[in-house]
């Protein structure tokens, strides 16, 4: 059977509001923790955006190094970062306005 790659759902499929974590489970002892937890800001980014942020930190925040590693031009990588910054600002705005 083909393994399905799951992605973390970030917004409600019904009303598009940001989702919260309401339960966490320990797979070793089956302990369940219930509550209402906010997802960290970075966890709300799309998977490829989050991977870009991880790569950016790993390259000591050097866009030039990242551009070399990815085989892309400097402005292409910088534009990607600018777009992620814009996404983060949008997420922050949504968090503030959501009930």
């Amino acid at each position: 059977m083909k393994a399905i790659k799951k992605s973390l759902p970030l917004s409600c499929p019904s009303c598009a509001s940001p989702l919260k974590v309401t339960s966490l489970a320990c797979e070793a002892c089956d302990t369940m923790v219930s509550g209402s937890f906010e997802l960290p800001l970075l966890a709300r980014l799309a998977a490829d955006d989050l991977q870009f942020v991880i790569d950016f930190v790993k390259s000591s925040g050097s866009l030039k190094v990242m551009a070399q590693q990815l085989g892309l031009s400097y402005p292409t990588v910088r534009n990607r970062l600018d777009d992620i910054i814009h996404n983060i600002e949008t997420i922050e705005k949504n968090i503030k306005t959501s009930p």
Binding site: L72, S73, P75, T76
Partner: peptide
């Protein structure tokens, strides 16, 4: 092509 080349090299 500027996805791959820009800056001083392109100039």
């Amino acid at each position: 092509p500027f996805t791959y080349i820009a800056g001083g090299k392109a100039l």
